[in-house]
Nucleic acid binder design. Structure first.
Lengths: 252, 252
DNA sequence: GAGCCTCTGTTACGAACTGTTACGTACTGG
DNA sequence: CCAGTACGTAACAGTTCGTAACAGAGGCTC
């Protein structure tokens, strides 16, 4: 799981890459027949304050969710990847801006229609509620990370979470792809870009990871990274299937 | 609103002190006939990992919600006050420990029973969902505070939020009562107790607040405090009624 | 109710960490 | 291939932390 909001998708439901789970199929099928919207990298899907009329499922790509403070600082609340949903936990207006990190394709479902569909469908309601609870749990995890962990610990947590989320932690070597920029990571972890660089370099120097280019990290000593991360994950219910992962080809 | 989780109660529903709102009555009436449990200050109501069998409504007093990290650090996720609910957004097991800050009285409703009651009751479902959404919004607010604000800004935000939450910001002078200890505030704001003291002293020295004993703060220059807090509140939908407030008599 | 005791809170100062600024390098896209 | 952007590194500055000493409030005993 990605520190917190990187993996706010399913708790009991899963998102296998080819839709083998019956529970997941229920949710996936809601979107399956909908047309696909495309957005270029850097494009916004919706903005904080917009009427929250739709929810989205990401068919492909990666988004960042953020809020801008009055003085211009940017707080990234989380990232969303292929297979995950977007905008479910907003009511009235979106409480953050959603922007494409990579080129993305997503399907749009109006909130009104979802409401109509879930009316009287207890199973669907449960699935949606599970996603909302998952999002709360992820947010609380993020709160713990930002409030209690130091820079190196936050970075370790970010990496370990990414590995778990993508399922990379079940292969050897553990290779994770990070489509977002260092600035994105910094704004997500509550650090500056320089501190992120420093810490990544230190992890590399200490032999915990290997860096291949800007967007690929190989976790060498996973157990040590997990310990650095405060082992916040191990007690977490993220024992789940990986979401489909976009191929490593995002330009910046 | 309290930085974030201090006020995760209602978004559309309100909790007037004497239950005058019809929406609030719907939720309040769920608990009204239930027996009252009492807990002494420092006592735990439930623990992280416990089966989340019940949800609670606080009749009186204040609780802290926290998680303990493997190395002993304590992260306070939020506080809960009289009139608010507890344990709603957990599924399966509680994801934090709830502990009385002051002597508390609360009413317990089993999750199974709530489920049965809400089955087929669309209005009740909406009310509960609104509370869950409110909690997510509060958590995201807390993420922004912990990730982007400095120590003084966090403290200012904490105070302004407390004022808004208790309705103290609509009177002059703005007097807020903080039943929790400095250590609680520190663990909530991601600071050390010394930094909390230092910052509070600085706010006092700068004439922004007056401190009366350990648990009472008078906000002198509210607008300046709000600006320090990043004005995160002003754009927030916390334009709501205050919850009933416990009398200022908590010993430590 | 007086006095002692313990716990909480406050302040000071040095240490550690993170932010800031600046500059050089690597990658990306045209 | 070139220009622009993102990234990495280093030196310096600022903030926060950690330790420690002290002050004050509340509780307890007598």
């Amino acid at each position: 799981m990605y520190t917190s909001h990187l993996l706010p998708s399913a708790s009991s439901a899963t998102f296998p890459a080819f839709g083998l789970s019956s529970e997941a199929l229920t949710l996936e099928s809601l979107f399956a027949s909908l047309p696909v919207d495309k957005f270029a990298a850097g494009e916004g899907v919706f903005w904080e304050g917009d009427a929250a009329s739709d929810i989205f499922q990401i068919a492909e790509g990666c988004l960042r969710l953020y809020r801008i403070l009055p003085d211009g600082r940017r707080a990234i609340i989380g990232f969303r990847f292929a297979g995950e949903m977007l905008g479910l936990s907003c009511e009235g207006t979106y409480c953050y801006t959603a922007e494409a990190v990579t080129p993305i394709r997503l399907r749009r479902l109006s909130r009104a229609r979802l409401r109509a569909m879930s009316e009287g469908d207890g199973q669907l309601q449960s699935l949606l509620l599970a996603k909302v609870f998952e999002e709360i749990r992820a947010a609380q995890q993020h709160i713990v990370v930002l409030g209690q962990l130091g820079a190196e610990e936050r970075a370790a947590h970010f990496l370990v979470s990414a590995a778990r989320r993508t399922g990379a932690d079940r292969k050897r070597p553990v290779v994770i792809e990070l489509p977002m920029t260092r600035q994105d990571i910094a704004d997500y972890l509550g650090l500056t870009i320089e501190t992120v660089c420093r810490v990544m370099s230190k992890l590399k120097r200490d032999g915990l990871v290997t860096l291949e280019g800007r967007h690929r990290v190989i976790l060498v000593r996973v157990a040590d990274l997990q310990q650095l991360a405060g082992e916040l994950d191990s007690a977490e219910p993220w024992e789940r299937q990986a979401s489909p992962w976009c191929p490593p080809q995002w330009p910046h």
